[in-house]
Design a protein around this nucleic acid. Structure first.
Lengths: 344, 344
DNA sequence: TCACGTAATTGAAACGGTTCAAGTTGGATC
DNA sequence: GATCCAACTTGAACCGTTTCAATTACGTGA
């Protein structure tokens, strides 16, 4: 089936392409009667002018950048998007957002879509399954397409804006140890995520500088989706005597922490009296959790702003710029979900 | 400043455009030495091939749809986006999301961007400031660009998927009245929003079928942003004697309800013992609010799926289809933030 | 009826890639 | 050193709009 073009409309109406074009662009040089006739034929043929042809001719004026996030439903990511937007809007850029839903194929498809549509540049929260599967990023590099990663990816040189997960978790665990906690566990996220790996590593590292010793039972795989985390938490405690309960749990992120919190409530375990909970990210709702959550705040807005800044600098530069690598600081926020055990 | 084209690269390298094109498309017909040379020149000139030209030649294969939401940070909207995605992905469409941030100009710009980029169709949560300012929608109609609105807009015939706000609020107020509440107020949202107007109307309507009488002091303008709603709530109660407190508040949406809840906590007013709270939307977090929220659930997922279905049907139809108009049902969800006063 | 000015319309060139049949190169073989 | 073949490269046509100088149509006054 052939696509309808402006030529088809012109032929059918008995006018030239130029006139049809004038109608489409609402020029006032067309005689009303002609105009109406053309509009009617456009409707009849269901003619949809191709933006691509227009953009080619007119030189693609629009300023737009994209973001590929992992999950639109987790406020951590939408806060980053807000940061991007704040910066970009001021520079006259439109921002379009997508989510890869932790699916590598989807990320690939989207990055390709964005570059193919001449979205001027893209910020990507990359899914790093293994070392392989980053050819799509190499392709972007080949065509000098500007992009910024929100996570370090080994094997490729690129602009990166990220946080130091390792250091952040260490700080949290150290806080617990200093507060007199002795049985500390980490509820880890999905194994695909590089965040999970970094956080496990940070957790483990924290013990090397403390009197406590790390053992691998301290790492419990819980996941990050609410329902899954809730179920696994229940299961975890079902298999344990009360005397073996941890005194503190360091969660993978704030959503998981919410699930854990809800599970503990169901099990009638009090927070923080019996178990302290630490989240990760400090999403908007964490301060209003049933027990306001102690958590590690990632500067979501700043991440977005910085990434947008670097991206736009690259977009607007006539020459290829050297890569930038920015690591932002986290902040440990103490609220009511943690208890100090060794109060002097 | 002229844009760099494939021709510039070809000239500089001393080869033809065709060869450069082959390199860009990773064809294996190019001699490695030539390839490397071309790649080097591409880097040197910072050449970014224009997707637009390629798409024009190749006939724009990609399948993609857009969504323009009002606020990416409010989970209600991202849930709709999830629904859209679920349906669209199955049909092979990529989904790209943006937010207009309640800014009419932004919505206009984005709808134009989407059509200009040949995103095949768009779902729009429209900002309806007044009757005017919908020319951008008329323009979309003129070019037969497929779109679906998530809200009825007077003055234009279009595909619509929406909920019956009026009926929903009436149901909630009726529940309160039947539960023996006598002093009921509505904390209204921002006046720009048509949701606000509909909800006010529904609230008022509910009284016409009840022994209570409506008066306009029952409508309090509180807004929908968290900080603003929090501040206004505090203010509202500061100016009132305890005996004048309402027994129940019907909130504009769940985020406002959270702000109200937090404010009441600060004022040491107990929920639901002293005041019942009803939210609106049933966002993901509402069930885990400090007091689990009684609210009106909008079928967010369903809205998204239905909108995507209609949109894709229109995109794929060779002929212009008649508009569809779908109103989805809400569900009143009773949790712990409301109290029945006339327990028999 | 003609000349004239304005309104309306035309049509060929241009945008920047991709395609692919045709042409060129160069190394191996005899 | 002629022949052949595979490897590599070329270049003109094409995609579907917009543009704008040139052309045509039309109404008006002389």
């Amino acid at each position: 089936m052939k696509r309808i073009t402006i030529e088809d409309v012109a032929k059918r109406t008995g006018v030239s392409k130029g006139t049809v074009s004038a109608v489409i662009n609402a020029k006032d040089t067309v005689k009303p009667a002609t105009r109406d006739h053309i509009l009617a034929v456009m409707k009849e043929l269901n003619f949809r002018p191709k933006g691509v042809a227009r953009n080619l001719k007119n030189g693609n004026q629009d300023k737009s950048i994209g973001i590929i996030l992992k999950d639109l439903n987790y406020p951590f990511y939408t806060s980053i998007a807000s940061g991007v937007k704040e910066y970009a809007i001021n520079r006259g850029y439109s921002v379009i957002v997508t989510s890869s839903d932790d699916d590598h194929e989807c990320e690939k498809k989207l990055s390709h879509l964005f570059s193919a549509k001449d979205i001027k540049g893209t910020i990507i929260a990359p899914i790093v399954a293994g070392r392989s599967e980053i050819e799509h990023l190499f392709r972007l590099k080949m065509i000098n397409y500007p992009f910024v990663l929100l996570e370090d990816v080994s094997g490729i040189q690129a602009n990166v804006v990220a946080i130091d997960n390792l250091k952040a978790i260490k700080k949290a665990v150290k806080y617990l140890i200093d507060s007199g906690h002795t049985r500390i566990v980490h509820f880890a996220g999905p194994l695909i995520s590089s965040h999970t790996r970094e956080r496990i590593e940070g957790f483990r590292d924290a013990f090397s500088e403390s009197p406590l010793v790390f053992n691998k039972d301290m790492i419990v795989s819980i996941g990050s989706h609410y329902d899954e985390s809730f179920a696994r938490t229940i299961e975890y405690f079902k298999n344990k005597g009360r005397e073996d309960y941890p005194t503190a749990i360091v969660c993978f992120n704030d959503l998981q922490a919410l699930a854990v919190m809800t599970a503990l409530k169901k099990l009638c375990i009090r927070i923080p009296e019996e178990i302290s909970i630490i989240g990760n990210d400090d999403i908007y709702y964490a301060q209003n959790y049933p027990v306001p959550l102690t958590t590690i705040r990632a500067p979501q807005h700043e991440i977005g702003k910085k990434a947008a800044e670097i991206l736009i600098r690259n977009i607007e530069s006539p020459t290829l710029l050297p890569n930038e690598h920015v690591i932002l600081e986290t902040e440990f926020v103490v609220r009511e979900s943690t208890k100090v055990l060794n109060n002097t």
